[in-house]
Amino acid sequence: MNMTTISAEELQTASGRRLRSSLARWMFLLASAVTILISGLIIWTIASEAWTFASQVAADQLQTIGWFPRRGMFDIGTLILNSAQIAIVSMIVAVPSGLGAAIYLSEYAHPRVRRIMKPTLELLASVPSVVLGVFAISFITPVVLSKFFDEINFFNKLAAGIGVGLLVIPLIASISEDALRAVPRDLREASAGLGARKATTAIRVVIPAALSGLMAAIIVGFSRAIGETMVVTIASGGGDTSLFETSIKESGGTVTSAMAALGLGTDQVAGNDLAFQSLYFLGALLFIITLVMNMLGNLIVRRMQERY
């Protein structure tokens, strides 16, 4: 090269290339604004109709016993009770299995086993919830639960809870496994170097160190269980009404299945004027509950990531 001087122009990128680059930048910015737009729309949608409901419903309509929206009986307590019962049953199923699988995969499994197990858990995670609903009424209740209970309703919260639990296992397993794997190898070595066996290291060092992450997994799993719709709709609360019933051997609709039932009839909402708006009120309730839980879960996960 024998060039000794260069003009400023030569240092500039060709204008076509530059234009393309800045065009791309604006496209990407626009795209990421879409996610904000979606959040805004969700909140606006729910809030406006839910507000109509909240401001027009009479207090005594909320204190009836049982959920009969088309007759103007909006006992949300019944739905919340059912949601809570089903979510708790689902956690009893999902937590041991999800955590157990996570600990096994992160602490014990041979890499080859992991390579097979991870896609299997992914497959499990993509089993459609309607299929689990069908499984609940064609297997969990008639084949399994009927062995343990003499009198159990064909539609019941227990089977729904088990079905939801099975659905939530992979979610809990995957978040927990991430948490366990985030625990530095150093700590496992320190423990082994002191003469701890594998199980001891897992129980006394790794699990306590990952505890907050495991908690987050359970919280997020619980939130998913609360939001699960189709398993419950098929297996426990198919109808659009729900009696107040504390036994988990009986049927009962949840916040979500009541929404699905109302949604099925959105063309022909007859009877009480507020039935349609109650759909949004339930949506608002569900949105807030799951949002709080997820934010909590995410916060805990982030704290944990910062620590290591």
Partner: peptide, 24 residues
């Protein structure tokens, strides 16, 4: 802000998206 928002959206139950779809 977008990242936080996306994380929260990921946890919103599917049926709530149904409400969004119905209205919007």
């Amino acid at each position: 802000a977008v990242e936080l928002n996306v994380r929260n959206l990921a946890g919103v139950p599917s049926i709530v998206y149904g409400l969004l779809g119905l209205t919007v």
